[in-house]
């Protein structure tokens, strides 16, 4: 990645698109320093979090991340998946954490699966629990790293619905996705990445109907042909 400059405002939904290998995931992972950027700076609410002395655990508890492969804790039930960080990171009492976990599960429509283990849930359900886990932390930003790419087509809708409801609730989101419908419908801004750089960005209508770069055009044409 080189020369990436991106500002995301509070309450904004930014969708990052681009061919695989273009550095989208790496970009997201640099934002919470899950991957250490070799150069450059990341500011979160005006604070330079790339400062080596930064308490990243505190920052990460405010920037939630949702992964392509869900990454629910496999040995814990849906409810306990959500409770773990609430008690260990936020220092909440168990009863309070449980209440919050149930509320989060309710929000993603899976309260009835509170005591199921990840292995007993469908991919779509797992991802919804993972989103619940993120939301329960009360984050200021949620980053989604291709949240629907590992899902069977018929399960994608339920996850996108949850994401849409988050967006309309005012959550700040950065979403790496190939779901152009979601990008067009929900996002405030679309960023097109290719070969580690941001080639262009703009309102979804602008990018989709009138892309300026040849590579963006080719990418979109190929995507919509499928």
């Amino acid at each position: 990645m080189k020369g990436i400059n991106l500002k995301v405002y509070k309450g904004e939904v930014v969708v990052v698109i681009g061919p695989s290998g273009s550095g989208k995931s790496t970009f997201l992972r640099c934002l919470n320093r899950l991957t250490e950027p070799t150069k450059g700076d990341v500011y979160f609410e005006g604070v330079r979090i790339t400062d080596p002395k930064m308490d990243m655990n505190k920052i990460r508890s405010e920037i939630a991340m949702v992964f392509q492969s869900f990454n629910l804790f496999l040995h814990l039930t849906a409810k306990k998946n959500i409770m773990l960080a609430l008690t260990k990171v936020k220092g909440m009492e168990v009863e309070e954490a449980e209440k919050r976990a149930r509320a989060a599960l309710d929000r993603v429509g899976l309260l009835n699966k509170a005591d199921s283990f990840p292995g007993q849930l469908s991919g779509g359900q797992q991802q919804r629990v993972a989103i619940g886990r993120a939301v329960a932390m009360n984050p200021k930003l949620i980053m989604f790293d291709e949240p629907t790419s590992a899902l069977d087509p018929e399960l994608i809708g339920e996850v996108l619905d949850v994401m849409k409801s988050l967006a309309s609730g005012g959550m700040t989101m950065i979403v790496v996705t190939h779901e152009m419908g979601f990008a067009r419908e929900v996002s405030d801004r679309v960023v097109f990445m290719d070969h580690g750089i941001i080639l262009e960005e703009g309102a979804p209508a602008e990018i989709f109907t009138n892309p300026t770069h040849e590579r963006t055009k080719t990418f979109l044409r190929r995507l919509f042909k499928e």
Binding site: N32, L34, N57, K58, I59, R60, S61, E62, A64, M65, F67, S69, F70, N71, L72, F73, L74, L84, A85, K88, V89, A130, R133, A134, M137
Partner: peptide, 18 residues
């Protein structure tokens, strides 16, 4: 243990030890 497990734990703010 799948690599994503540690990533998920760290990304939610847990320390390495936790």
């Amino acid at each position: 243990v799948p690599k994503g497990q540690l990533e998920a734990a760290r990304s939610i703010g847990m320390t390495y030890t936790q």
